[in-house]
Amino acid sequence: MSAWHTVWLVAKREVVTRKRAFLISTSIILALVVMGLLALELSGVAEGAEIPKEDADRVLASLSTVVLFGTIIGYGQMTLMGVAEEKSSRVVEVVLGAVEPTKLLAGKVIGIGIFALAQMGAILATIAGTLLMLDTLPIPAGTWATLVSIFVFFLLGFAFYSTVYAAFGALMARTENASNAAGPLNLVVSVGYVTAMISTSAGDSVFAQIISLLPPFTPTVMPMRIVQGHAAVWEIAAAVMLLAAAVYWVTRLAGRIYIGGVIRGGAKTSLREAWRAAAL
C-alpha cells in the first residue's frame, strides 16, 4: 500500500467525521457575511455616495485578513483538539500499530486543511458574489492576482501553524487542557492579525513591511499589503520563499514533537520529553 493511500485514508476520515459540523459552521459564517455586506450597503451607499477606491481596498484588505486569521486559528485549534482527542482516547496507539506517525500527522493536516480551504473559498466567493451583485464597492483591478496570493499564503500559513497546533495537541493528556495549550499559539497568530489591522488604516508602515517578511506573521500581514497594493513583487517573492523554508523546518520540528507526544500513551508530556522520546 502506497504512503499516499494511507495519508488519504486518514484525511478522508477527518473529512467524513467532521462533515456535519463543517456544513453548519460554514452556513452560519456565510449568513453573517451576507448580512454584514447588506448592512454596509444599506448604511452608506443608499444615498448614492461613491466609496473612494482607497477605502474599498481597505475594506477588502480587512476582510481578507479576518478570513485568513479566523481560518488559521479556527482550524488550527480543530487540529489540536483532534490530536489531543486521539491521544486521550488512546485510539492513537491502535492507529500507530498500522500507520507511521508522520503519515498520520500529514493525513490529519491535509484532511482538516481541505475543510479550511473549502470554507475560506466559500467565504471569499460569497463576499465577491455579494459585492458584484450589490455593486457596492469598486472591485480592485488586481483582484485575481490578489485572490491567488491569498490562497498561496493561506496554504503555507496553514501548513506552518496546523503542524505546530498538532504538536501542542500531542503533548496533552486530556482534551480539557487542550484549549489552554493553544493559548500561546493563538497569541502569535494574533500579533500578525493586529499588525495587519492597524496597518490597513495607518497606511504601509516600516513595521508592517518588516513583520510581513517574518514567517509566523507573513500569512496574515502580507495578503493585506498585497490587497492594498503596498507590497513590491520582490517582497512577495521573498516572503513566499522565507515562509516556504520555515514550513519545511517547522513541520520537521513539530513532526518530531508530535511523534514524541503521541507515543507517550496517555501521559501529559513536556516539550523536552517529547523531543527525546522521538529520538529514542
Binding site: 485514508l9 486521539e86 482516547s89 488512546r90 485510539v91 500499530g97 498500522a98
Partner: peptide, 29 residues
C-alpha cells in the same frame, strides 16, 4: 506491521464513530 493485529493495554476506539465504520477504517489502514 500491516500484517499484524494489535490490541493495546489502554483500549482505544474513536468514541463518536460507529463500530462498523471503525472496523472498515482500520481494515483499510
Amino acid at each position: 506491521r500491516l500484517r499484524f493485529g494489535y490490541m493495546p493495554e489502554e483500549r482505544g476506539l474513536y468514541p463518536r464513530m460507529a463500530p462498523r465504520d471503525q472496523l472498515i477504517y482500520f481494515g483499510e489502514l
